[in-house]
């Protein structure tokens, strides 16, 4: 646990001491804000819950994009600068390395989520939205963000170029989103199979304010499997 905290603190400090993290968050916040304003102002009048649902949809999309951008440097940069040798030669396990980086990135992503909080609160003030709905939505964003970060980290662990890492992470996340849409146009039993694989599907229930243990476990399990894959990639690098 000590090593996980150490690595997480260092990674978090790296996000805070460099401009890239702030730029990513600021850009995402701007885009979510523009889309949120458009949804509120445009078209026929909507129920508050619908507006909050729409907000979570955009926030979820940018959360995935942000996850890829925040995670692209986590391993690729270490390999590029040679600092991975420091971690490899220190008495820390691959799990501790992966979890330390993962929790740091998740904490920083949560900062983005926190900065969007005023938007649904505005709807809450002027309309009728429950705290439970907001809790469910943000829980969904965090869980989806965790899975996306784990996917992005996998991309980052496969290359020493941050650009290639971002492309790989983007491809992984796009595939996961497309699985959901592909399920809409296929016939059973393929529909069920693709839906079961779709990382994007449970988020819609969270957006509507519904929290199911099944969905939480699903996101938790997917994150675990992806992080485990990260540890295997790290171990494989020692053999190459």
């Amino acid at each position: 646990m000590r090593n996980i905290t150490l690595i997480a603190r260092r990674e978090l400090a790296a996000y805070l001491r460099t401009m890239s993290g702030y730029i990513i968050i600021a850009a995402m916040l701007l885009l979510v804000g523009i889309l949120f304003t458009t949804v509120v102002m445009w078209g026929p009048s909507k129920k508050s819950a619908e507006i909050v649902g729409e907000f979570f949809k955009y926030a979820a999309f940018f959360s995935m994009v942000g996850s890829v951008l925040l995670s692209m440097r986590l391993f690729a940069e270490e390999r590029q600068t040679g600092t991975l040798a420091l971690l490899y030669s220190s008495p820390v396990s691959d799990w501790e390395i992966v979890l330390g980086k993962f929790f740091a990135a998740l904490t920083f992503l949560s900062v983005f989520h926190l900065t969007t909080f005023f938007m649904p609160v505005l709807v809450m003030v002027y309309g009728k939205v429950s705290w439970g709905h907001l809790f469910a939505g943000y829980l969904g964003l965090t869980l989806l963000g965790a899975c996306s970060l784990a996917l992005g980290m996998l991309g980052s662990s496969l290359t020493k170029s941050q650009v290639v890492a971002a492309i790989l992470g983007g491809v992984f996340v796009t595939l996961v989103v497309n699985t959901y849409f592909l399920a809409r146009v296929t016939l059973p039993p393929l529909t069920q199979i693709l839906e079961a694989m779709a990382l994007y599907a449970p988020i819609f229930r969270f957006m509507e304010g519904v929290v199911r243990l099944k969905d939480v476990v699903f996101y938790g399990l997917v994150s675990y499997v992806l992080l485990y894959a990260n540890t295997r990639v790290l171990e494989a690098r020692r053999w190459r």
Partner: peptide, 9 residues
């Protein structure tokens, strides 16, 4: 290592 493993920030 041949390249010092340093975190610039």
């Amino acid at each position: 290592p041949d390249t010092p493993p340093l975190y610039d920030e």
